[in-house]
Write a protein that binds this DNA or RNA. Structure first.
Ligand SMILES: [Zn+2]
Ligand SMILES: [Zn+2]
Ligand SMILES: [Zn+2]
Ligand SMILES: [Zn+2]
Lengths: 134, 134
DNA sequence: CTTAATTTGTTATAATATAACGTTTGTTAT
DNA sequence: ATAACAAACGTTATATTATAACAAATTAAG
């Protein structure tokens, strides 16, 4: 019965729904305000749901923005390898799905021969729309 | 006189000294406690110095830890391209200096042909010491 | 010197995140 | 079904990280 498909709890489902409906990354307290009508009252309830959703790869945290976004990349092998493009002008964030890049980084060894189980990459630049408007 | 070598202000120099002496990344409020004997009293004085030091590439922010570390890589072309290895066990952080990696990422184009001026990459794993102790 | 720009000092407050504790719900094994 | 355990919940308080606003002092340039 309990396959790989995790069963989300009520709060986890509520928080995930909000994040999946959003056009861009959401901040924790903005999520909180959005879900108060659904019974979630305290920051901790949001943060607990976020923690679990990250753990199972349904969402990612954009570290440079302290914001959370739904995974668009088949749940990213449980959040172990993430890459994002972030527009410096309009703040648009897009998850990068690029097999060559992920293979390159997953196999990367530093000068001392160390390999890594997990990485997070954030690219910054101008998105196509903002570049045209310049 | 004012070449590329920026002249640091008093507070900037104090904060940079602390960060350069440290073995690992420092948090802003830990820096604050460390510099209070030198006349810096308020968080904002620290954050302002940090902002400038980042801007000129003397230090970097480790986003996943909200901590700050001195640049070990010829000031990283003014902080535009940074990569770190972070140990999940002992929290040791090391700046990665790897020409192939930085070239690969600086030249990376996503599927829509977009290129980026800036990136930050954080690798997570076990450092050599921690791996041996396992 | 004068003017503009940067840096500083200071107080207050905003924004992000976790500790601690007890209760409830869900799962598993008798 | 029911005892035992784990996961999730609710709640209050608090810790941690970061910025707003404003006035004074210092520095760089013309
Ligand atoms: Zn993903
Ligand atoms: Zn844009
Ligand atoms: Zn550097
Ligand atoms: Zn280690």
């Amino acid at each position: 019965m309990t396959q790989k498909q995790e069963q989300l709890s009520k709060n986890q489902q509520i928080v995930l729904n909000i994040i999946e409906k959003a056009k861009g990354p959401l901040k924790a307290y903005s999520i909180l305000y959005n879900v108060q009508k659904r019974g979630i009252k305290a920051p901790l309830q949001v943060y607990r749901a976020l923690e679990k959703l990250i753990e199972i790869g349904k969402i990612h945290k954009i570290e440079s923005k302290n914001a959370f976004i739904a995974c668009k990349n088949s749940d990213c092998e449980i959040s172990k390898a993430t890459a994002f493009s972030i527009c410096n002008n309009c703040e648009h964030v897009k998850e990068i799905k690029n097999t060559k890049l992920s293979k390159y980084l997953s196999n990367f060894e530093d000068n001392s021969g160390m390999k890594y189980k997990k990485y997070n990459l954030e690219f910054f630049g101008l998105c196509r729309d903002c570049k045209l408007k310049q």
